[in-house]
Design a protein around this nucleic acid. Sequence first.
DNA 1: GTGTATGATTAACA
DNA 2: TGTTAATCATACAC
Length: 422
Amino acid sequence: MDDQGRLIQARGAVGLPPGHPAVPGVPSMTPHSLHEPPSDNGEPRKQDIGDILQQIMTITDQSLDEAQAKKHALNCHRMKPALFTVLCEIKEKTGLSIRSSQEEEPVDPQLMRLDNMLLAEGVAGPEKGGGSAAAAAAAAAAGGVSPDNSIEHSDYRNKLSQIRQIYHSELEKYEQACNEFTTHVMNLLREQSRTRPVSPKEIERMVSIIHRKFSSIQMQLKQSTCEAVMILRSRFLDARRKRRNFSKQATEVLNEYFYSHLSNPYPSEEAKEELAKKCGITVSQVSNWFGNKRIRYKKNIGKFQEEANIYAVKTAVSAAQSGGDSPNTPSSAGSGGSFNLSSSGDMFMGLQGLNGDSYPTSQVESMRHSMGPGGYGDSMAASQMYSPREMRANGGWQEAATPSSVTSPTEGPGSVHSDTSN
DNA sequence: GTGTATGATTAACA
DNA sequence: TGTTAATCATACAC
């Protein structure tokens, strides 16, 4: 007999109208589950099943006490095991079949990524030297080797080890809680299976749901751990946090270039590379340095007067020492080597520019002394000694009339411009 | 501990 | 893409 036929038969048995479902969500009923002693015409059996179904259908309409009593009576009914089997079958065929298709989800790529990262960082999986490899890789990525690298490495290792420890202990807690909860639910369902149709498959499904829920919690844990590792890594790698002042020699080289190219303190790419090599820093650090220097100089020219003078003197000294034959070359300021820079025409004329005469070293020294320990206390005096470029209205650098510091190489030593605008 | 110096970063701009 | 200007974060001197 087909489902339709069985349904009609069941309806007839319980005396339900054709539009009313026999049992909610029950499309079919297999007669083989209802083995009854054969009767002559089947009427008593039909009547029996009908009664049971009727009682089940109306149990919710009764009072609690009545329902309890009825439930007990139904539980003890001889037809109960058969009905239970049928209901289990029906549940399998309806709800479960729909859900089972949704259950087979592919492995979450996000979870895979997290797992891979934790594995790579040495947080998950076997410990690989406490993350020293990762620390070394991080240091390599940073592109520099600092003298206290080993300290940083151990610091990184310790922190990573802490993260690892927390991760594993939390993971263990989750797993324990998951197992406990699963056992609890399984026991509960087994217990309930005495009073309602709960098939083993359903229990299995419930277990997998619990596992999925717990694995989503685990994913959060993994995500948090990954974030912690990322923060640790970024702290370890973040150069800003590990800022080191450049060496004195490096700063000197950069300043020499800056003040000797004050009219156009924009080193070319080649010059930057040369400076970087000379200072033992990167090209981008040179760019940063010049960017900072320009803006800070412009913002507070007065503050840099002294510094400018010192470098003017230095340059003059070296120019004088080298016979004054190449006053335009910053490298002539005693720093050795050449930047191979084009003559930007902004070389300090040293002290030459003051009155057009070349100053011998001794005179330079005496001038230096005349500045006093604090350099020029008088800004006017300073501007006479060395006056910076006038800034363009738009904030840029402009070749301004300056007394000594900045003159075109084509200009004679006497091309002194007074600039008291500062 | 505090103020200043300084290297790095970032958004906006040309 | 390089520069400016503002800002951050750290180093350093006191």
